[in-house]
Amino acid sequence: MTKKIAVVAADGRAARKIITEAVNRGFDVTAFGRKDENPTDAQHYVKRDIFDLTADDLKGFDAVVDAFGAWTEDTLPQHSTTLAHLSDLLAGTDTRLLIVGGAGSLYVNPEHTVTLSQTPDFPDSFKPLANAMASALADLRKRGDVKWTYASPAGDFQADGDRTGKYLLAGEELTLNDRGESIISYADYAIAMVDEIEKGDHIQQRISVVRA
């Protein structure tokens, strides 16, 4: 049976990679974005702001991918408000909610008391974004009524990196590959995301991915 998925905030580069990966695997994909024309490979496109989405818009999908991103000081709180809105729309349904997350909230110690964004080498310029995304994740963890999965990329998330077709699946902690790298391309991250939709069962869990 063909998987039906929706991708929200579909205009971004990570979203487009996920859409392409899903379409190439035979998924039926609906993209929700803010552009007038469909900039993605999705078979269906709906121009709609994320806050204007309704429960009816998302009815009937096996999974909804939240690819929302904001980078300016005044819009950073929308990481929490948009995710809360989507969670409310999907609450109590069987539709999975998968979030394109951040790496800053990954833990760097076994006790899970220190995150990557709290380490000395983490760039100051990225801390507001990391904090905003961590806050959204903290709110999400309180939701027992949504089948969510939060997918964090590696520390070096490369928009134009190669599609190697290989990745390591990890959990709450920052994971390095055997070359000591924390790196993943958007294309390989998209593979991991679609794999999770297709055969993963990390419900109400955070996963992370790094290049193998």
Rank of each mutant, 00 (worst) to 15 (best):
T20H: 08
V114A: 02
L176W: 01
D162C: 00
K47V: 09
Q78V: 00
S117Q: 14
W71E: 01
T164Y: 02
G12K: 06
A190W: 07
T164P: 04
E181K: 14
V146E: 11
E21D: 14
D201P: 00
A84K: 15
T149K: 01
V64G: 10
D178Y: 00
F122N: 12
G102C: 12
D28E: 15
E21C: 13
F126A: 14
Y186L: 07
T149C: 13
G200Y: 09
R179N: 11
A67Q: 05
F68G: 15
G104Y: 06
G155S: 12
I19G: 08
A130H: 03
V194H: 04
K47Q: 15
D28N: 14
D188Q: 08
K59N: 15
A84I: 11
D201W: 00
T75R: 13
A91I: 10
F27E: 01
A103M: 11
A55C: 03
F51W: 06
G101Q: 05
A84F: 00
H202S: 15
D36S: 14
S87V: 03
V23S: 11
T81I: 07
K142C: 00
L116Y: 08
L83I: 12
H112M: 11
A138P: 00
D178R: 08
A42E: 06
I19E: 09
I203R: 11
S208H: 07
V64D: 07
L76T: 07
I207C: 06
L58R: 03
L168M: 12
I18R: 05
V108M: 11
E111G: 03
D160A: 11
A134M: 04
D74Y: 05
F32P: 09
A9T: 06
D156K: 07
A63G: 05
S125M: 15
N38R: 02
D178K: 12
V29M: 08
I19N: 06
K127G: 03
Q43R: 11
T72N: 13
S135R: 12
H79Y: 15
R211I: 04
L168R: 12
G101S: 15
A187W: 03
I184D: 12
D188V: 09
I203D: 10
E172T: 09
T93I: 13
F122P: 10
D156V: 14
L89R: 09
P77S: 13
N38Y: 01
W148P: 05
T40E: 07
D74E: 15
E21M: 08
A67N: 06
A154H: 03
D62P: 00
G144R: 02
I203H: 05
D139V: 01
L176M: 12
A70E: 14
M1W: 00
D88I: 01
D88P: 01
V29P: 06
G104K: 07
I18S: 05
G101F: 04
I183M: 07
L58Y: 02
G104W: 06
H79E: 10
A84L: 09
K47M: 13
I99A: 04
N38P: 02
S208G: 09
A55G: 14
W71H: 12
G33N: 05
N38F: 01
